[in-house]
């Protein structure tokens, strides 16, 4: 059975990046690779070989949904769950993200203390 170890986090804001990385590494015990843009994520994803991908929706240049559609060519998202992180929580948008292939939408501002647990529960739903 697969094990959740490596998380790829794509987020254009360095501060949020740092908080999430610390929360996931310190409280979850995961290995986190942070990318500042969609392009960087595409460049790194195969080398890093993540078990889980956290993707910010609003990013300059290539946004979250665009990055996801490119990522699908490189990663089997059936095995490697993708979750969006966004402040936009309109119900029809969540549905739209799901149809793009995202497993879950994590609402910003997120609670750093429970972020790791949230990620783990999504992962176990897929690999349960």
């Amino acid at each position: 059975m697969a094990e959740l170890k490596r998380i790829l986090h794509v987020e254009d804001d360095r501060s949020i990046q740092a908080v999430a990385k610390l929360a996931l590494e310190t409280l979850g015990g995961f290995e986190v690779l942070s990318c500042l843009s969609g392009q960087e994520a595409l460049d790194q994803v195969q080398g890093f070989n993540p078990d889980f991908i956290l993707l910010d929706v609003m990013m300059p240049g290539m946004d979250g949904p665009a990055t996801l559609s490119k990522l699908r060519e490189l990663v089997d998202i059936e095995q490697v769950p993708v979750a969006f992180m966004t402040a936009k929580v309109q119900p029809q948008e969540i549905e739209q993200y799901r149809q793009l292939g995202a497993r879950e939408v994590i609402v910003k501002p997120f609670d750093p203390m429970t972020l790791a647990a949230q990620v783990r529960s999504i992962w176990s739903r897929v690999h349960g």
Partner: peptide, 15 residues
Amino acid sequence: TAIAGALGLVVNGAL
């Protein structure tokens, strides 16, 4: 988001 997140980690003893 960053401020609240960072403070949350510190205040809750994660560090």
